[in-house]
Simulated assay, not measured.
Amino acid sequence: MAKRHYIPVTADVPGAASEGNCALIRKVIRTALAAEGVDFPCEVDVLLTNDENIHAINQDMRNVDRATDVLSFPEFDLTPGQLPTSEDADPGTGLVPLGDMVISMEHVAAQAKEYGHPKRRELAYLVVHSVLHLLGYDHLDEGPQKRQMRAREEAILAELGIGR
């Protein structure tokens, strides 16, 4: 898998952007993009934060007054299976900007404990979940959309060797 995607990972909380977390996030994003057929250079920006900061972002951007585990801000209005093209690339960078993801590391730790699996697995799951949102997947209903998204999440995690 070519390392041609630009995936800056920043953190506004100490220690969140460790070498291990950054390497895992980049590997998961690259694997998810390849699994979804993204064969052009793109950019995905990642912010690792805490519950207080993701709460403020959720309030500002979505008018939702609570913390959450992950927020996704897609650049394009896509449907599953529909992809932007190289024509959508930023002329200055040659990269297609897919969007931004914000992850609460406090939620990562709490949910890993709640579900009884390692933080690494929870972080990988949230990254896959966010990438799929950037590519047009959604789970607003409890029916086919949610099942389709969950199936893709599990398939990508299995490809990474990250099981439950």
Rank of each mutant, 00 (worst) to 15 (best):
A151G: 14
D90I: 09
R147C: 03
P74S: 04
T49V: 11
P144N: 12
V128P: 03
A89C: 05
D77R: 04
P118S: 14
E106L: 05
H107I: 00
A155Y: 00
L98A: 08
T31V: 13
V128Y: 02
Q111A: 12
V108D: 00
V13Q: 10
A89M: 06
G136N: 04
M105L: 07
K27T: 15
P74I: 04
V108C: 03
E159W: 00
A89D: 03
G136P: 06
H107A: 15
L126K: 10
Y125F: 13
E87I: 08
M149H: 07
R4I: 14
V96I: 09
A67W: 06
I54K: 07
S86H: 07
A23I: 09
R164K: 12
V46P: 09
Y137D: 00
V64C: 08
P144G: 06
R66D: 10
E36K: 14
G94R: 08
E159C: 04
E87S: 15
P97F: 08
D77F: 00
R66L: 11
L140C: 06
P14V: 10
P97A: 11
F73S: 11
E52G: 15
N50K: 04
D60F: 11
A35H: 13
P118L: 06
L78M: 05
Q111W: 02
Y125S: 11
A16Q: 04
G20N: 13
G161C: 02
E142C: 11
P84E: 01
P144C: 06
V127Q: 07
Y6W: 13
A112Q: 03
T10C: 08
H129K: 07
L95I: 05
K146W: 05
G143V: 09
D138T: 09
R26L: 06
A35M: 08
K27F: 01
V128T: 12
P8A: 11
Y137M: 01
T93Y: 02
A155H: 02
M105F: 02
E106K: 09
L132T: 05
I162F: 04
V64W: 02
D88W: 01
L24M: 08
H55F: 13
G136Y: 00
V108S: 01
M1S: 14
M101W: 02
M1D: 13
I54L: 04
E114H: 13
T79S: 07
K146E: 13
R26F: 03
L134D: 00
E19K: 12
L160Y: 01
T49G: 05
I29K: 08
T93H: 03
G143A: 15
A2Q: 14
A124K: 01
G143D: 15
S130T: 12
I156C: 01
R62W: 12
K3T: 13
D77V: 04
L126Q: 10
R4M: 12
H55M: 09
P80K: 01
G163C: 07
G94S: 10
